[in-house]
Computed example of a mutant assay.
Amino acid sequence: MASPAVDDYLKTIYHHTEWQDARITPSQLATVLGLAPSSVTEMVKKLAALGLVTHRPYGPVSLTDVGERRAASVIRRHRLIETWLVRDFGYSWDEVHDEADVLEHSLSDRLLEGIDDRLGRPRFDPHGDAIPDAAGVVHREPFVLLADAAPRHTGRVLRVSDRDPALLRALVDVGIDVGVTLDVVGAGTVKVAGTEIDLPEGAADAVWLSVSDQRA
């Protein structure tokens, strides 16, 4: 069943558990997708009938093996396109998500393979999200959400949520980007290159750090 709507559901379910373990509920799906709960319930039933998800009434939704492979394929398209737009067209990281949402449904497999080859087969997109390979495999290192990192923790920024473009711009303004090392000072405060800064609102719940280099 080739359908952008189906792919959007699978992509959302896949994305929900990439950086935490709790499975997504139908009500959370409705919120993220901006749809009525009744519409989401009906679509989840269809996805289950297609063998793409498992779900019991009032319980969370999980991808089947088939559903996960299809979701990884869509995620791969989306993140390769985001990377392509940043590297070859000069887009900033706060501009690419909506463009990729449109293009991911229209690019041929041949063109996508050409883009991947041109980019040198990148493993991560501009926000630090892992790009699945052609087999759906992803590689990540251990991580911690900035909000959960203890004071004196030092780690590289592995990933920044792309959900809020305004927050992405605010993070750039204070020098925070994927790959930058942060020293956690306390709630809402970090050091970047030795300079103490106050985090923009919402940043602690949108930035993930490497777990290495915990200092005594």
Rank of each mutant, 00 (worst) to 15 (best):
V61A: 06
G51Q: 10
D125I: 02
F143L: 11
A147D: 11
A149P: 00
K11M: 13
V137R: 15
P200E: 02
L47W: 01
A166K: 14
F89P: 02
R169N: 05
A193G: 05
G128H: 02
T189L: 07
V61P: 01
T154R: 15
E99Y: 00
G51N: 11
V184F: 03
D148W: 07
V207F: 03
A134C: 02
V211P: 00
V44E: 04
G175E: 07
K45N: 12
H55M: 10
P57S: 05
S92C: 02
A48S: 15
G155V: 05
R87A: 09
T154V: 15
D117R: 13
M1N: 11
V157F: 09
A170C: 04
G128Y: 01
T154I: 11
T31D: 15
E82C: 11
T41W: 12
G186N: 04
S210W: 02
A48C: 09
T41H: 13
W208Y: 15
E99C: 02
L112T: 05
D8I: 04
V185K: 09
D125E: 07
L145T: 03
R87M: 10
V86E: 02
A49F: 06
P142C: 12
A2Y: 12
L209Y: 01
R110D: 12
A2G: 08
A30M: 09
T181P: 01
V192D: 01
V157G: 06
Y58N: 14
V180Y: 03
H97G: 03
E201P: 02
H97T: 14
T41M: 12
R56S: 12
A30K: 03
A48D: 13
H127I: 06
G136P: 08
V185L: 10
A134M: 07
D173N: 14
G51W: 10
V137H: 10
W208M: 03
H97F: 11
L167R: 02
A22I: 08
V207W: 01
S73M: 04
Y14F: 13
R140W: 07
L107I: 12
A150E: 13
T17V: 14
V102P: 02
D198V: 13
H97Y: 06
K45G: 04
Y91K: 04
A49S: 15
E196H: 03
V144R: 09
L182E: 04
G179K: 09
G51F: 11
T12F: 08
T25V: 05
G175Q: 07
L107E: 07
T25I: 01
P4M: 14
R169C: 05
G202R: 01
H105G: 10
V174R: 02
H16F: 15
M43Q: 15
G188F: 05
G59T: 10
V185A: 13
